[in-house]
Amino acid sequence: MSLEEKSPIQTIKEIKKKSKTVMIVAGEASGDMHGGNLVREMLNIDPALTFYGIGGNRLQKEGVELLANASEMAVVGLTEVVSKLGRILKIMRMMKRSLDERRPDLVILIDYPDFNLPIAAAAQKRGIKVFYYISPQVWAWRKSRIGQIKKTVNKMAVILPFEVEIYRQKGFEVNYVGHPLLDMVKLNYSKQESRKKFDLAPDKITIAILPGSRPSEVTKLLPELMLAARILKSDMPDIQFVLPLADTLEAASVTEIISSSHVKVKVISGHTYDAIACADLALVASGTATLETALLGVPMVIVYKISLLSYCIGRLFVDVKNIGLVNIIAGKTIVPELIQADAGGKRIAAEALSILKNGERKQEMIKELEAIRAKLGETGAARRAAQIACDMI
């Protein structure tokens, strides 16, 4: 039967059969960001692909049908999971059911291992291929997960160069695609143009405050960061503050904490990189933001604070000297890290003043940060990862 002779129903069935469906899971803000870029690149290769899964604004913007929002699942620390465990398990059951109901041609998982590895196992059990983009931090803790990854993941793309050898030693070949932030960390304005746009004084010392992308992080860190801001303002009256608001946060929750500190802070939405780059120093919650700040060449103090129980449990398993991605990639401590009790306002302010008042230390830090970019490979990570994923379908 020729195409002209086929009924409309037959034609529609054939089109549906030919179109490919991809399930994608990004349980955190950074995963949503990288996932959005990956989906865009995959659609450039094959515009007929359809996507569904878990993510945030970035994945939704690229046309992904969200069955759950990443904001419902974002937590920091082991004990913090408890408050959202019921919801997380409900979402996991829903995603596993979708493997039977929708039979995706490929499952793409982005970091978020405690949720994603069970999903990988469920997909593998059903004969559905699994592509893992951005490895769990097995080099930092729970290396035993590599065995589970080998059994349930068909292909993995890693974004840090040293991860290749870690997996190779365990008999699992992975693809190093470079770091996706190299394509993303770009500026629209010069430092002075940004300060003018954000209504900041052109010649004042400027501090960027990055309290994290999860509400639980902000609750713990922002009050201490604002105490540090108050101390800095007292010591250096001619200083100003800017806070780039993560798109996973509600502005009201941030401004409420800021207003109680009685320190003026300019909250900026939608121009994260320009807001960071216009600063002389950044106070940054440990995570992807530290690497973004490094690529912008801005000196920083890394802060990290979770519940005491989570911290104590984590210390039993963590196998790295540093927690900041910048220092881990550098292979040494190039920016200060203030963890738990050390991440108090007074200590944060003291560390910031030490950098601001020591020009030589500040310049050395900037020099070390410039070297980070060279260690992250070449641009085009999302494009290379997208090609791997499309080749699996």
Results as ranks from 00 to 15, higher is better:
residue 308 L to D: 06
residue 391 D to A: 14
residue 151 K to L: 06
residue 161 P to N: 05
residue 366 I to M: 12
residue 219 T to P: 05
residue 222 L to G: 09
residue 68 A to E: 02
residue 178 G to A: 05
residue 69 N to R: 11
residue 1 M to P: 09
residue 358 N to D: 11
residue 333 T to H: 04
residue 88 I to H: 06
residue 189 Y to H: 14
residue 356 L to Y: 01
residue 76 V to M: 15
residue 213 S to E: 13
residue 214 R to C: 03
residue 125 K to M: 09
residue 31 G to L: 08
residue 84 K to E: 07
residue 86 G to R: 12
residue 293 T to H: 03
residue 50 T to N: 12
residue 149 I to A: 14
residue 172 F to M: 11
residue 370 E to K: 15
residue 185 V to F: 00
residue 146 I to Q: 08
residue 297 G to M: 13
residue 149 I to K: 11
residue 127 G to E: 07
residue 341 A to I: 12
residue 61 K to E: 15
residue 293 T to Y: 09
residue 191 K to H: 09
residue 189 Y to R: 13
residue 3 L to P: 03
residue 336 P to C: 09
residue 74 A to M: 10
residue 159 I to A: 00
residue 54 I to Q: 10
residue 161 P to Q: 00
residue 100 D to N: 02
residue 38 L to D: 14
residue 32 D to S: 10
residue 378 E to S: 13
residue 321 K to Y: 04
residue 210 L to A: 07
residue 376 L to W: 00
residue 361 R to H: 04
residue 160 L to R: 07
residue 153 V to R: 08
residue 186 K to I: 13
residue 188 N to Q: 07
residue 288 T to K: 12
residue 165 E to K: 14
residue 101 E to K: 13
residue 149 I to L: 14
residue 77 G to N: 08
residue 198 F to Y: 11
residue 159 I to H: 00
residue 131 F to Y: 15
residue 162 F to K: 06
residue 165 E to R: 09
residue 279 A to R: 13
residue 33 M to T: 14
residue 308 L to C: 01
residue 99 L to Y: 03
residue 241 F to A: 13
residue 363 Q to G: 02
residue 140 A to W: 07
residue 48 A to E: 05
residue 266 K to N: 13
residue 205 I to P: 01
residue 151 K to H: 02
residue 184 M to E: 09
residue 142 R to D: 07
residue 346 K to N: 02
residue 253 S to H: 12
residue 63 G to P: 12
residue 275 A to D: 00
residue 57 N to C: 09
residue 90 K to D: 14
residue 55 G to E: 02
residue 249 L to I: 11
residue 296 L to I: 03
residue 52 Y to P: 11
residue 277 A to W: 02
residue 177 V to S: 10
residue 99 L to T: 07
residue 179 H to A: 07
residue 255 T to K: 15
residue 108 I to V: 15
residue 351 E to Q: 09
residue 45 I to F: 05
residue 32 D to W: 15
residue 116 N to W: 12
residue 35 G to C: 12
residue 365 M to F: 08
residue 261 S to I: 02
residue 105 D to L: 04
